[in-house]
Design a protein around this nucleic acid. Structure first.
Lengths: 197, 197
DNA sequence: CCTACCGATCGGTAGG
DNA sequence: CCTACCGATCGGTAGG
């Protein structure tokens, strides 16, 4: 018989990180205090430190956890036999889906990673640059093959990745359209925007 | 003979706000301290309060100053005789140009307005919603006229406005392409993405 | 997991 | 514009 903690939804540490993701998204990392977090979790602030080492550690777990998921997916796509345009669409859809289903952590990762202490900051920064370069390379290859129109590839990457962040405002505004419809609309506009012809 | 303060570039208060915009962009509003700001300006922290009433007042001036500029431009475009698609392009170009030439204030406005104290927060929130609704209405009209393809207009607005924020990373990465080329690439991808046929 | 508390730092004020 | 300082709050620790 295994020892079940909390309400059966992972470890106590996971519960804390989940609450922290919501809190950091709402207030920003700097403005969110450990006392706020403790209240959300239902303990005294000091008790949090039995599960986590520091406030910064929570941010690290969020940022590197999300980043890793994107990197693993990028590996998959790169090794597939899809056309370059299909690869771009796949990656775009992954970002949209992550933003829809895990928006708190994704949002925090994207907006608060600057607050990571060294050496995590530099580490994250490098991972991010590498990821974008890999994405850029796919688009450049697609241009070379004539699948994608002659645009500046890094600019295209910026547009694709930034657009996805707008889903935040879809989330806040009571789901006027379904997640599936949102995804199709975004893909339609963006893939059409870079496709040749 | 008028009294010239600072290095002839506006009032002392403007100097402070300009330095604050750079600081808030770099560290975030919450993590930027008045002592940091004072050091940048070259005075003691207490001296700042001879020119500004509070830290929050600086954020207000930045956010409402930028928002107002966009609203004034929206008025102009709405009253013009352009096609709806041309109106969308005009507004998109305005956002791109503002982000290129005034990126510190625009970035801070977009990322830190949540930290405005009430009633400024609600006020800003309303202005923002109204602006987006006006932009959405232009796109909906363009769809009705057959200039723009049948997409969800609010989703299109999200994509157009969010994409522009990516210019931040262009700014950081040593201007690989010119501002003009960046603008043309963004317009090409995004307007092509929403245009009919 | 709690009580009690630490040194540091925060935004801001008094008074000159 | 400065010195001196305020009360509040911060992240985190000691000790149980």
């Amino acid at each position: 018989m295994s020892k079940i903690k909390g309400s059966g939804k992972g470890t106590r540490k996971e519960t804390i990180i989940k609450a922290a993701a919501a809190l950091f998204r709402e207030k920003g990392y700097g403005a969110a205090s450990m006392r706020d977090l403790a209240e959300k979790v239902g303990v005294e602030a000091a008790s949090l430190y039995n599960h986590i080492r520091s406030k910064a550690e929570i941010l690290q777990e969020i940022c590197f956890g999300i980043a890793n998921e994107f990197i693993v997916y990028m590996d998959e796509v790169e090794n597939s036999q899809l056309t370059e345009l299909e690869k771009v669409e796949k990656i775009l859809r992954k970002h949209i889906q992550m933003m829809i289903t895990r928006h708190e952590r994704v949002y925090v990762t994207d907006h608060e990673w600057k607050h990571l202490p060294e050496p995590y900051y530099s580490n994250f920064h490098n991972q991010r640059r590498t990821y974008r370069k890999r994405f850029t390379a796919i688009i450049e290859q697609g241009i070379k093959k004539g699948e994608i129109k002659r645009i500046d590839a890094p600019t295209a990457v910026i547009i694709l990745l930034q657009s996805v962040n707008g889903i935040e405002s879809w989330h806040r505004s009571n789901h006027r359209i379904s997640a599936a419809a949102l995804e199709e609309n975004m893909v339609s506009i963006l893939i059409e925007g870079i496709k040749k012809n």
